[in-house]
Design a protein around this nucleic acid. Structure first.
Lengths: 120, 120
DNA sequence: GCGTTGGTTAAGCACATACTTAAGTATTCA
DNA sequence: TGAATACTTAAGTATGTGCTTAACCAACGC
């Protein structure tokens, strides 16, 4: 099984850095070596390797070394997990607004724009 | 205009913490005061306020103080932005696999399983 | 007015991040 | 064999994060 909480922590944290997102974007277009990933980034190779480690720890990226080159590829399952969390948030939020709309339509069809419902 | 890069940094970073995700989940079900948000979290109020500050900085949450209670509500636009980034990654990745599949089908119809197709 | 409620500010601490440079280790190629 | 390539490891540093406690302030409620 997959530990939702900790996994989401790692995925969102991995995506919270622009260099790492650049790497993920690059890998979306196909596998790449470490130095290919490094090319567009204005930092040392070791720094890139550290970012890669974060991406691998999150499960977003897998890599394999053949000869002296390490080839990295994206792992979309984890990306789906993050997407699902967001989608679910949106779903509950939207259904709440729907229910609120229904409620307003039912009880007070003339009072249109009432949103300040700190109901509790 | 909205600065994609920095905004995404902030949103993903905001979502990378389980306490903050709990707060967002709660707010998805409707507006809440600071102490309501704090209730399920095993930490001091100031800590919660700091998390709230991160959420507000990301644009995910807005709040307004009336009397002595601050009421927080979710701001779904930013959530959409994060979702879109992920969706776009998935899209390019999938279209790449499609093109790869076409290529393999065209050039070498007998060599089937070249790219483990875990296609979700 | 005076205590209680709801939140805010400030300071401090432990630990994590995001880099750096320097020095390694394997491979590959001429 | 020996230089170049592609990382890898280690160590150091500056800055950021996630909490804490203590003290404070501004509404209510009576």
């Amino acid at each position: 099984m997959l530990n939702q909480r900790g996994d989401l922590d790692k995925v969102f944290h991995a995506l919270a850095d622009p260099s790492r997102r650049t790497m993920v974007e690059r890998l979306g277009r196909g596998p790449a070596s470490v130095s290919e990933l490094a090319k567009p980034l204005a930092m040392s190779l070791p720094a890139v390797v550290q970012h890669l480690a974060v991406l691998e720890a999150s499960g977003l990226v897998k890599s394999e070394k053949v000869g002296r080159v390490r080839t990295c590829r994206i792992e979309p399952k984890v990306l789906n997990m993050a997407e699902q969390w967001i989608t679910q948030r949106k779903a509950t939020w939207e259904s709440r607004l729907d229910r609120l709309g229904d409620f307003l339509a039912e009880t007070a069809p003339e009072t249109e724009s009432e949103e300040k419902r700190t109901d509790t």
